[in-house]
Amino acid sequence: MAVLHNRVSNQELKQRLMEETFNRTTISFYQYFPIQNPQEFRDFLYRHLQALNAFGRIYIAKEGINAQMSVPEENYTDFQKFIHSIEGLQDLRLNIAVDDDGKSFWVLKVKLREKIVADGIDDPSFSMQNKGKYVNAVQMNHLLEDPSTIVLDMRNHYEYEVGHFENAVEIPSDTFRDQLSMAVDMLKDTTADKNIVMYCTGGIRCEKASAWMLHKGFKNVFHLEGGIINYAQQTKKEKLDSKFIGKNFVFDNRLGERITEDVIAHCHQCGKPCDTHTNCKNDGCHLLFIQCEDCAKTYAGCCSQECKETLDMPIERQKEIRKGVENGQNIFNKSKVRLRPRLEEIRKHNA
């Protein structure tokens, strides 16, 4: 029986990826559709994708599939045929990455989840069958020019910070489940003639959010088909003005893809214009933050002088310091709430 999970270390897999002599294409896709036996479907996918030398991260739940992947260019046609041969995925749109170096993933992981997007919804009457109207890039631009349009960004703060649509409203929470209830509350006094347009990275969050808004009684609800990724591809192909400015944060090794040349964020350490995300090199921290090249040299890729000093210690001493530290939500949380106090501390130290 074939092994249906990886048994090789991440370090070796990354090395193999860097040594590949062929090109890879980074793809993302999702679909809300009923899966009766998620475990069986998971194993079926793993076998076929492994045979195609595909890497990536895929979540399977009874409500559907959510995937971000990379596939060798020579296998892309076979990959496309395979995905479209699956019942429920025949007309699935595959989002091709905008700014791709082919080094987005180095291992294949197919995991089971309760939901493909954690939403906190426990209302049995809620259904994804009734969702907002899709809009393409042309329609999105027209809606953005309409003064009766409200644009909601359904992403987290660290995504919004480096790039967003003009006049988009940021929902001040860093969990999707909280954003759903906050969006309803924020727009509770909105008049019926307003257009509510929602967007996210690839479409999966804003599609569910649009269904939730309709469920809560809102009328003119739209969501951007294929999210920012598809919008960027369409604007490039059809030579449209991009109303999205800056960088699109992505959840793989690239941490972002350039949409326009605008740099709207700032280095969290010196305040210089910069939109390059990185994780603190101290293994006991790994804070996600924005760092310019100069600060990367000064702090050796760390978020603070304290982490740099830890990084300079012998490995065994670093392990001792990390022992007993809970490497969970508080350390790896990328939220604005977690980030701001930490960065204030950094700035005071640098003053």
Rank of each mutant, 00 (worst) to 15 (best):
P147N: 09
C295Y: 01
S28L: 07
W212R: 08
E344L: 12
H349P: 02
G120W: 04
I65Q: 01
N66Y: 08
G227A: 03
R24H: 08
V110T: 09
N75L: 02
H5R: 13
K308I: 05
G120E: 01
T191S: 13
R340M: 12
L288R: 11
W212L: 03
Y160C: 10
R342M: 13
P72G: 02
I86V: 13
H48E: 15
I346C: 03
D146L: 10
S242P: 08
H268L: 06
L112Q: 13
F44W: 13
A300Y: 08
Q291L: 10
F82N: 12
S173D: 06
K319N: 11
N333V: 09
I245H: 11
L92V: 15
L288S: 11
Y30L: 03
I321F: 04
N282T: 05
L311P: 00
L108G: 05
E161V: 15
K236R: 14
I204K: 00
A67Q: 04
M140H: 04
E225C: 00
V71N: 01
W106H: 15
Q50R: 12
L92M: 11
V117W: 04
P314L: 06
N350P: 01
R93K: 06
F249N: 00
K323I: 04
I204D: 02
K236T: 10
S125I: 06
F332Q: 09
M154W: 12
I27P: 01
Q129K: 14
L311R: 03
R340K: 15
I27M: 03
T310I: 12
F289K: 00
L255P: 05
T26I: 05
L339I: 10
I346W: 02
P124A: 08
A168I: 12
Q269S: 05
R42V: 05
M154Y: 10
P72E: 07
N230G: 11
V337F: 10
P38Q: 03
H286N: 15
T25L: 09
V337L: 10
D178S: 15
C206P: 02
Q291P: 05
K334P: 11
F79E: 07
L4V: 10
G64C: 11
E293W: 06
V221E: 00
C270T: 08
D146A: 09
L108Q: 03
K243D: 01
V162F: 06
K243G: 02
E344R: 14
F33L: 09
R7H: 14
K348R: 12
P124F: 05
D123A: 12
I35S: 08
T298G: 04
V98W: 07
A61Q: 13
Q129E: 15
E309W: 00
M198F: 11
I245W: 08
I96A: 03
K219P: 03
F222E: 00
P124S: 09
L94W: 06
Y231S: 05
R205N: 08
P172H: 12
D101H: 04
D193H: 02
W106I: 02
W106F: 15
I315N: 13
C285R: 05
S173Y: 11
H277C: 02
D185A: 13
Y46G: 10
T298W: 00
T26P: 06
R7L: 14
S104T: 07
H266T: 08
E166I: 15
G203N: 08
I331N: 13
C285G: 08
S304C: 04
K247R: 13
M313V: 07
I65D: 01
D294V: 12
V138I: 15
C206W: 01
V110C: 05
